[in-house]
Simulated scan of single mutants.
Amino acid sequence: MYFHAGQDFVLNTRDLIGVFDLDTAGASRRTEEYFRHAEADGAVVDLTAPGTLPKSFMVTDFPDETVYISQLSPAALKKRAEGSDLK
């Protein structure tokens, strides 16, 4: 099933590896290093609207490992992903 991940972008729930809170996970040195490598590989997609702060990031494995940064909270993304299974 698909769900809206922000900025008119839709993801397939089966491609989703995880949804992470930028406030907690973003403070980690390992997460910072992971982002640095992902950016160097061109695997980071920013879904935030101009002028808004990102709240979460999602890691997917299709077509390759990609990181999507979203202005939506992890709770909102979880609710959307769970709600898409009901349709």
Score class of each variant (00 low, 15 high):
I69M: 12
A49E: 15
S70A: 13
M1N: 06
S56M: 09
R14M: 02
G18F: 00
Y68G: 09
G42D: 03
L53D: 15
K79I: 11
P63I: 02
D15F: 04
D46I: 00
T31C: 12
V45T: 10
Q7W: 00
A49F: 10
A5D: 05
G42Q: 04
D64N: 15
L53V: 08
S56T: 08
M1G: 11
T24D: 07
V67H: 01
L53G: 13
R30F: 02
G26K: 00
F62L: 14
K87G: 14
T66S: 07
A43N: 12
V10G: 05
A75D: 15
D46E: 11
Y34D: 06
R30I: 00
A38D: 05
V10L: 05
D41I: 00
E82H: 13
Y2V: 06
K87Q: 14
F9E: 10
K55I: 08
Q71H: 15
G51M: 07
Y2G: 03
E32H: 08
F35D: 00
H4V: 01
M58T: 03
T60K: 03
V45N: 05
H4D: 11
D64E: 15
V19P: 00
E32T: 07
L11K: 01
N12E: 13
G83R: 11
M58S: 04
R80A: 13
L16E: 03
M58C: 09
A38W: 01
T48M: 07
T48C: 15
D64I: 11
T24K: 11
K78V: 12
D61W: 04
D15Y: 04
D23C: 07
F9T: 13
V44M: 02
Q71D: 15
A81M: 14
V59D: 00
F9I: 08
R36D: 08
V59E: 03
R14G: 09
S28C: 06
D46G: 01
A81N: 05
L53K: 14
T66Q: 14
F57H: 09
A40D: 13
V67M: 09
D64F: 13
E33L: 12
K79M: 15
E33P: 01
R14L: 09
P74I: 14
A75V: 15
F62V: 13
S28L: 09
E39Y: 04
Y68P: 04
P54F: 07
E39H: 10
D23M: 03
R36P: 01
P50Q: 12
V59L: 13
F3V: 01
L22F: 06
A5M: 08
T24E: 12
G18Q: 04
P54L: 03
A75M: 14
D23P: 01
R36H: 07
H37T: 06
D8A: 11
Q7Y: 06
V59Y: 01
D64P: 06
L53W: 12
F3H: 06
L47N: 05
S73P: 10
L72D: 14
G26R: 00
A76R: 08
D8T: 02
R29I: 02
L47I: 07
D15C: 04
D21Q: 03
V59K: 05
P63S: 11
F35E: 01
P54M: 06
M1Y: 08
D85H: 15
K78N: 14
P54W: 04
D41S: 08
F9Q: 07
Q7L: 09
